[in-house]
């Protein structure tokens, strides 16, 4: 039967109005503000213990990488022109520490995600950030200080400004990239934050 009066402001009256509390178990996202962080804390040593129990099989000792398994969780080569492609490691690449908390909370351990308690996650984040040389070994990570961590690559991102090539549809006797005089275009970079609607930008 219709939920009488529960939906007077909905045109189609098909949604059920629910409370914030009701949603809590699903509302797991932690954005850079850190507002949604659960209460808790954890240290390097605690993190090491959990890591060596629950993560090492896939990510290797100290996050050095497993065989066919999880990704490397260590600082890796500089983000410069190298082959193979540079590894986008936590220490070198990730702009926010909250992302690490958010991701472990939602997705790890791989086979049993969402099984960790907040304290365990704080400890793992502390462990991994320390292994990545982001914070010092004695930091106790909590819901109070996690969002304040300044990641090394915090300002390493720009907005998408594609199209970044301007190829012409030559039809006859065209040059190809191997030919001298072929127009490769130019290097297109920008630090504009507002060119594209899709850009991820924190509120001012």
């Amino acid at each position: 039967p219709l939920l009488a009066n529960s939906c007077t402001e909905q045109d189609y009256c098909l949604g059920i109005v629910v409370s914030d509390t009701y949603i809590t178990p699903w509302d797991i996202d932690v954005d850079p503000s850190g507002h949604s962080l659960p209460k808790g804390s954890g240290s390097y040593d605690q993190g090491l213990a959990i890591y060596n129990q629950q993560c090492i099989a896939c990510h290797g000792p100290q996050g050095k990488g497993g065989i066919r398994m999880g990704e490397k969780l260590r600082p890796l080569p500089q983000l410069v022109n190298i082959t193979p492609l540079p590894h986008k490691s936590i220490g070198r690449y990730w702009p926010y520490a909250t992302t690490l908390f958010d991701y472990i909370q939602r997705a790890m351990p791989f086979y049993t995600p969402k099984s960790l308690k907040p304290d365990q996650i704080y400890a793992l984040v502390a462990y991994l950030l320390i292994e990545n040389n982001v914070i010092s070994k004695d930091v106790i990570l909590t819901n109070e200080n996690l969002a304040e961590i300044k990641m090394p690559n915090r300002n390493g991102f720009v907005c998408d400004i594609r199209p970044d090539t301007f190829n012409l549809a030559c039809m006859q006797d065209c040059l190809t990239p191997k030919d001298k005089g072929f127009d490769l275009g130019k290097i297109v970079m920008t630090d504009s934050k507002s060119l594209q609607a899709d850009c991820l930008l924190l509120p001012e």
């Binding site: 992302t99 991102f157 290097i187």
Partner: peptide, 29 residues
């Protein structure tokens, strides 16, 4: 929301490194 999540799959993954150490976020199209 009024803020992006900056989830792992829009930072560590699915972002594009340029030649100058900078990376593009949200190259969706």
């Amino acid at each position: 929301t009024d803020t992006p999540l900056f989830s792992r799959n829009e930072t560590s993954k699915y972002t594009d490194l340029l030649g100058n150490d900078m990376a593009r976020n949200a190259s969706l199209i």
